[in-house]
């Protein structure tokens, strides 16, 4: 069958989704931990998918997204390299074509995407501060010794959620400790934390945005029923969590790759051997000017696949020309 691969490499997870020509997931989507090693995670994911494919299965298009989209794009030979906003919006619209708001909360970042008539009309991403994202929930679940998968269900048992200062996670944590020492029950505290995070999200990322239903909630944090309930309470509207909520970026990238290659035949996919190829990555400091850019170089055996990180573009060459430049350097 003709298949389309979507890859989303984020700070926390590396996700792969394989779609059939109709845009439906062909294999179970993969959600792997990046663990600081995007190349290894990508290769692991590709190997898992390769082993599940049948004889007639052929990859006809590849799309990448996420903060390592450029890196992933070079390694696999992507047809589309797209930012996360566009990828998430495409996937949400596929699930719910009439969607008007997409809430996406991942490990280190959060976004809001406002859609009207199937088009992105506004968006925002969190700025330097990662308060109120998945990592903080993870950290608090660990502190309270509750498995993260049970965290959300616990919030559902709350009678009167306590009010927790959600503006900054440092304050939130000390507030939680305080409330717990006062004798509030764990479910009330957990539900209170969810409400504080939702408040924080709506005040920062969602500030001055027209949040209108239908609302889609995706990203890893959407697994948390407590967060979903808190959003529904704050927005007074139903919040839809799609089935593949945690791999929507990869899903969107695959859809984009499908559209692109169906329009322009032929894929740049470098084949499954990518999962076993040895890649070398290194970085060096360019000495040509006082900017001292840290240049990253990705090599496959002796061939330079890509370099980036330089402001002026002098290293943005590939092939033999680049090798010479490095030797001279």
């Amino acid at each position: 069958m003709e298949l389309y691969l979507g890859i989303d490499i984020g700070s926390v997870s590396t996700n792969l989704v394989m779609l059939d020509p109709l845009g439906e997931p062909y294999l179970a989507p993969l959600y792997l931990r990046t663990q600081g090693q995007p190349i290894a995670a990508l290769q692991r994911g590709l190997a898992i998918i390769r082993d599940q494919l049948g004889k007639g299965d052929l990859v006809c298009g590849v799309g990448t997204t996420g903060s390592a989209r450029q890196l992933a794009g070079v390694l696999v030979g992507a047809d589309v390299v797209k930012n996360e906003i566009s990828a998430h919006a495409v996937a949400a619209l596929r699930i719910l074509p009439e969607a008007r708001t997409v809430i996406e909360i991942g490990g280190q970042d959060s976004k809001i995407i406002i859609l009207r008539d199937g088009i992105v009309v506004d968006f925002a991403m969190n700025t330097v501060c990662a308060a109120g994202t998945g990592s903080f929930l993870d950290q608090q679940a660990f502190r309270l010794n509750i498995p993260i998968d049970e965290f959300g269900a616990l919030a559902g048992q709350a009678c009167t959620p306590v009010r927790i200062a959600g503006r900054c996670t440092v304050f939130a944590e000390s507030d939680m400790v305080h409330k717990q020492q006062m004798g509030h029950t764990l479910p009330d505290i957990v539900a209170g934390l969810c409400e504080a995070m939702v408040r924080n999200y709506l005040n920062n990322v969602g500030k001055s945005k027209d949040v209108a239903p239908p609302i889609v909630f995706q990203g890893g944090v959407a697994a948390n029923q407590g967060m979903r309930a808190a959003f529904e309470k704050a927005l007074q509207a139903e919040v839809v969590v799609p089935r593949y909520y945690n791999v929507m970026g990869a899903y969107g990238a695959a859809l984009l790759a499908r559209d692109q290659t169906q329009r322009r035949a032929g894929t740049g996919f470098r084949g499954w051997q990518v999962s076993t190829m040895p890649f070398q990555q290194r970085s060096f400091e360019c000495k040509a000017c006082p900017n001292a850019c840290e240049v990253i170089e990705i090599k496959q055996e002796r061939e330079v696949l890509a370099r980036w990180g330089d402001r002026c573009g002098r290293w943005g060459v590939t092939g033999a020309e680049a090798d010479q430049a490095v030797q001279q350097h």
């Binding site: 797209k82 930012n83 996360e84 566009s86 088009i119 992105v120 009309v121 506004d122 968006f123 991403m125």
Partner: peptide, 14 residues
């Protein structure tokens, strides 16, 4: 870059 890309993408689609 992510923000600029998303913004110009959005404008082109609009």
């Amino acid at each position: 870059v992510t923000r600029l890309e998303a913004f110009t993408d959005m404008l082109l689609r609009r």
